[in-house]
Amino acid sequence: MEAAARMTVLAVENLSKSFGGVHAVRNVSFAVGAGELLALIGPNGAGKTTCFNMLNGQIRPDSGSVRLGGREIVGLAPRAVWRLGVGRTFQITATFASMTVRENVQMALLSHHRRVSSWWPRAARLYREEADRLLERVGMAEQAERACSVLAYGDLKRVELAVALANAPRLLLMDEPTAGMAPKERIALMALTAEIVRERGLAVLFTEHDMDVVFTHADRIIVLNRGTLIAAGRPADVRADAEVQAVYLGSRGHG
């Protein structure tokens, strides 16, 4: 399927951000459609993370627009962006260390169902089945009772995925979803992600260093270099792109 044929979930136009005169991101435009995995790649310092953080409201862009399902979201706080259906995972996992795996997911569900202002019910009894279903889906059901602070790193990534899915998002933003994992785990996690994306019709934007992962799972790829978009297209096209090969694939010294 071509992007045009899908329903556009995220549309980014002319996004720019500079820090102290240095252009971190310059006039970047792209779109992600439902059911699509879009990979954002580029060498270190290309502006991937800045770009990412502008999409969910952690950083405010200098100019440009970010539309989610047609609605402008520039200027909204991350928590407001989340309410509009954007799930997020982080390069360095961010989970609640004082809670169990299940409670981490329950926490997201409680927020999704707008129950965080209730003072009386036992949080651990709410949305338990729903949380378990999500954990089941990411293969963490058996570890539901364990503390997040004692999990293996790959497992934490799965928990994050479950948390990110808790608000039934339209869009998943995954920053380096497989960073720090063993190769085998990487393939497994991305295969799982792709499966979930297809079954739920989500749109996914992810950054990734591991080119095997990118070229195996991305439907399309956009390439950023020094803040500017230099290529976009299907994996095969991008792989063949001369400029990409020159600035990026030719110098993949960063592992």
């Binding site: 969910n56 952690q58 706080a77 991350p78 928590r79 407001a80 989340w82 309410r83 997020r88 982080f90 961010a94 989970t95 609640f96 260390a97 004082s98 809670m99 409670e103 329950q106 926490m107 997201a108 409680l110 927020s111 999704h112 129950r115 965080v116 202002s117 209730s118 003072w119 009386w120 019910p121 036992r122 949080a123 651990a124 709410l126 948390v163 808790a166 608000n167």
Partner: peptide, 22 residues
């Protein structure tokens, strides 16, 4: 042990994640 108490703890454990789940 209520949802509010959990949310409070969530904000302390990881402000980044708490913000990202609304």
């Amino acid at each position: 042990f209520s949802p509010y108490g959990y949310a409070l703890r969530a904000g302390r454990d990881s402000p980044l994640r708490a913000d990202a789940i609304g």
